[in-house]
Design a protein around this nucleic acid. Structure first.
Lengths: 227, 227
DNA sequence: GACGGCTTGAAACGATAGTTTAGAATGATC
DNA sequence: GATCATTCTAAACTATCGTTTCAAGCCGTC
């Protein structure tokens, strides 16, 4: 279908899918690689084997294409890796393990979603107007799902802030390896991020998070902890 | 001295400090706000009340200014908030609490360092050539320090990977609130990030991390955890 | 006060960005 | 097969970018 990273749309695709779809694919790839600003419409159109004016025709302008690319990518990520899949065990700890694993797999999907992850990372650091819609439509529902999972571990008497911050602790550990990928790679050049490592990493994060959340359960909201 | 966020160099500064220093201050502010690519030399020079050619004269080119800005900012952050201050308690848990607190304070320093934090965040997502030097000179030493603190909690028999991933779990929680600030702010508009909240947040992260790391101590490297 | 060094200033240069335009090609409808 | 809206193409347009140029200003030295 779309394409592998680093290459360009194949000649087959030119005839099989329309210009609009090729622009979306090339846009995802290019925006993820270079960011919104650095990515040029000429480069995107070249990769999509389309005319320079194609973006303005199909998406009004560059920002229009970007918004559509972002929406598309998130939708696909959510479908392929739901944080709370249909069949979930009742055990709260197992639920958290699965959510963490899904999160990591999504972020590090070697195919299309890798571009997706980088795109999201950029959007968070340098938010465009597209972020507001994205948070409302895609991120917040998933955040609520995760908070429910965390609440299952903290217990019903946990404060709203404990649930919120506890959830952010889990999410923070997950996205770190992706957001700070450039630094991690330079710090630990021997550390690969293949799918086997990702699953072990998911297990590590889940273990740390479970023990950490349990530790939160027996304390207050976190007053300084000195004896 | 330099200036508060959002404003421009005050008229007083124009006479008190030299063009080179004003360019560094304006560059830090502008690069942090808009990123390397989007920040224009005209904007920077305007904020610094300097001529368009000033950057090329003092720093060879735009990239030269950026490299100097990045180096300066990191140096100041490390001096103001050392992760492992001179006087540190012997207790490993207290050591971790202090390191986490220092890390968060550094990242969220409302003054100059806030720009610093955003600058670093950008550099991680869209690394420039300056990142290699930065990791080697500034980040790696501090990573080693933190790993030593974590090792003090995990115990001497912890594997290298456990220490490494455990440290990343702590760092991940800290930087998350900053890197993903745009999303966090939209998800929880009521959550301020003032200094009082930051210290409570530091306590939360330290508590979760300590319990999490202790949970790691009693297990293997993290095989799936099913009974 | 003339000299020679740094430093600043206004203007222009060349390159590239996003966008627009007008016409050609296409393809379905009657 | 003519008609018409849709889609594509090549070229030009306008704005802005980083950089360069060269003359003018400043300031201590002899």
């Amino acid at each position: 279908m779309f394409k592998a990273m680093g290459t360009t749309i194949t000649n087959n695709d030119i005839t099989t899918i329309g210009t609009r779809e090729r622009l979306l694919a090339a846009g995802l790839e290019t925006f993820a690689e270079q960011g919104y600003r650095a990515a040029t419409v000429r480069e995107i159109c070249k990769r999509a084997h389309a005319n320079v004016a194609a973006i303005n025709y199909h998406f009004r302008d560059k920002a229009g294409l970007y918004g559509e690319v972002l929406r598309n990518a998130c939708e696909q990520a959510r479908e392929k890796y739901p944080l709370v899949p249909g069949e979930m065990p009742a055990d709260p700890e197992q639920r958290l393990r699965i959510s963490v694993q899904q999160f990591l797999r999504r972020i590090f999907d070697p195919g299309l979603q890798s571009a997706n992850g980088r795109l999201m990372a950029r959007e968070m650091i340098e938010p465009t107007e597209a972020l507001d819609r994205l948070v409302g439509e895609v991120i917040r529902p998933q955040c609520d799902q995760l908070q429910a999972v965390v609440r299952g571990i903290l217990g019903a008497d946990a404060s709203e802030e404990q649930v919120r911050w506890g959830t952010m602790s889990v999410v923070g550990q997950c996205v770190f390896y992706h957001h700070s990928r450039a630094v991690v790679e330079r710090l630990f050049p021997d550390m690969s991020l293949g799918s086997e490592v990702i699953d072990r990493l998911a297990d590590h994060i889940a273990t740390v998070s479970l023990a950490g959340l349990r530790g939160l359960r027996t304390r207050g909201t976190g007053a300084n902890g000195k004896p």
